[in-house]
Design a protein around this nucleic acid. Structure first.
Lengths: 347, 347
DNA sequence: CTTAGCACTCAAACGGTATCAGTGCTAAAA
DNA sequence: TTTTAGCACTGATACCGTTTGAGTGCTAAG
């Protein structure tokens, strides 16, 4: 068991190391601690903390640095989220100032705001789309065999893509096909639609079109795009500030992962969880691109419109109390904005 | 004036330095040069070259390194483009393998191919859009006040954007407005359309709509998007390989410049020029984000569909003969692909 | 004009020394 | 039992003098 003073020492080591990035020695601690004991006493406490594996030395006669285990202990037991400052609230409000035409714009903007506020890297995900329903499908001919396929889903998000129609697709058939889709498939979840696209739909279409393959490709393609979980990254380049020194290779791989459009965000952030804010660091992070970094994930809920996630990537020596407070405030603000958006939209 | 042997020496210094990155001494040169003279003779030649400012020492007793002026001289007088290898041609062919629905997809893919091939950073621009004409404008209602505005231009490129219609815009008026646009404005160049949008169009629309402002905003917005010069970057992250060591700040600024959607590419690459391939390096580069780098720009022409540009950014000590050969082959290949695309499309 | 020879220069690597921050341990004080 | 002062010890860091090696410029002879 640890004494109250030892807890204080650990807390101060983490605070000081977070601020300066330098190992913390007993004399420094003596000056900073609220209680007044000699450096020798503190050294004894530090020895105890080191025995528990909570802090460690960088070399045999150096000051101490928090270990991963120490951070874990700190996060589980000691950290007290800081309230967000008025400045930060103002910055958030201002960031959300403009007008948004799509949910995704709000989510993308969130990543920007969050990264600006923290100087770290933010990743945001829109509300989950599992039981999203198809509400409409259009194809607009634009001349020269070009058509634009537009797919609308129940949360108001719109996916469109340009296609060149294969010559074997006859426009008469296409019109009928679209009518069928809107009659038969609207109201179903995207998952169900995708399934029927494999089974029933081709059979039906064969009655009206000579070769429905090209058409099915187009529809399937747009459907896939609409169902894809998209994520937005803000402050990619900030990575260089807290990772730049040594591991250029890691930096490159991480940036590449963030840039890849269809990159699986789950591999990076892990699954959606129910706790409000979750911190993972050091060896707890499975994807090795995040080694030596810290990952904060937070969920947010938009009522019946689903649950989403925001995440913050930064250095292990992060001011956790501040970041946790900020992330908590932000997730509520984002939820409010999205609820707002949906309510205008549902009216 | 320089003797033939001095030119040979300069050429070999550049070749060797490009390969090794190390200053080149007289003994090394003696071993590599096709003619057989002693190192002392070479030293004399090097002294002459240094007097001309074509090479320089890194310190008083070091080997020589080409100066900016030396590279300039080399590029203007000595360089011989290398023919592209069969492998590289195959890689280009394969890169263009898929099917493309838009010109922009071809141009974007070009940047990827070029950066893969060179391990440098490629920037590509589509053919110029100055006398692009408007060929159609659509608005597709999607329910819940949402509409998708679609603008088609004479080169087949399509621009679309989602909007939420202000409630004061009446759909009856919108339909009339669209008909007017398609009657009056189709066939005009985008520049002319933009101009009329300021002057005549509002007056006309006032006859049919109570408040055409919202509608005009939408149309203007999509028009602006269509007229914007877009550029594509491939191999951003390769920058780190040849710029990573020291200047993190430059790297950040350069990446930020490339990432910014509406970033003015002219500031980076300079204006379109008529020479096939142009190399700028060192102090010739005006934007200081490119300091100590080398910029190769090449134009390509797609007949009456305009002229575009591709560019390569890399380290100053670049294998120029190879890169120039490659860029020259690539610009012709790209022109062919685009001509192909247009011909299918014009048919 | 070319070459061999030589003295000279500088960067880089190496080993020794001093400095300094910080430690663990011990024995005395509280 | 806990706290403190004192002391020997450790390792990182910086500094200094020395050596090594690649490369130079210059000069005098071929």
């Amino acid at each position: 068991m640890l004494t109250k003073r030892q807890l204080l020492v650990l807390k101060e080591i983490i605070r000081s190391f977070t601020e300066s990035g330098q190992p913390v020695g007993s004399k420094t601690l003596m000056a900073e601690l609220p209680i007044h004991v000699s450096s020798a006493t503190i050294r004894n406490d530090m020895a105890a903390l080191e025995e528990q594996g909570l802090i460690k030395k960088t070399h045999s006669s150096s000051g101490r640095v928090p270990s991963t285990k120490g951070y874990r202990f700190y996060l589980d037991n000691l950290v007290e989220p800081t309230a967000v400052s008025a400045n930060e609230i103002a910055a958030i409000q201002q960031g959300f100032g403009g007008h948004f035409y799509k949910i995704d714009e709000i989510v993308a903007q969130s990543a920007r705001i969050l990264s600006n506020l923290t100087s770290y890297t933010a990743i945001t995900l829109g509300p989950e789309v599992t039981n999203l329903k198809l509400t409409g499908f259009r194809m607009v001919p634009l001349g020269n065999h070009q058509v634009m396929a537009i797919l609308v889903t129940s949360n108001g998000s719109v996916e469109s893509q340009l296609f060149t129609l294969p010559p074997e697709v006859d426009s008469d058939g296409v019109e009928k096909a679209i009518r069928i889709i809107n009659d038969e498939l609207v109201g179903l979840s995207l998952g169900e639609v995708a399934q029927k696209l494999q089974t029933e739909v081709p059979a039906v279409l064969f009655k009206y079109m000579t070769s429905p393959d090209g058409f099915l490709d187009i529809f399937g393609n747009v459907l896939k795009k609409a169902a894809a979980e998209r994520f937005y990254v803000g402050g990619r380049l900030n990575l260089m500030d807290y990772l730049g020194d040594n591991d250029v290779d890691q930096l490159k791989r991480l940036l590449a992962m963030m840039d890849s459009e269809q990159g699986n965000v789950n591999a990076l952030l892990g699954p959606l969880h129910d706790s409000h804010i979750k911190v993972k660091l050091g060896s707890e992070l499975t994807p090795d691109v995040l080694a030596n970094l810290s990952l904060l994930t937070a969920n947010y809920s938009v009522g019946e419109h689903g649950t989403g996630m925001i995440a913050l990537i930064g250095p292990t020596q992060m001011p956790y109390s501040k970041m946790i407070g900020l992330l908590d405030a932000f997730r509520e603000e984002l939820a409010k904005r999205l609820t707002d958006y949906y309510s205008h939209f549902d009216q």
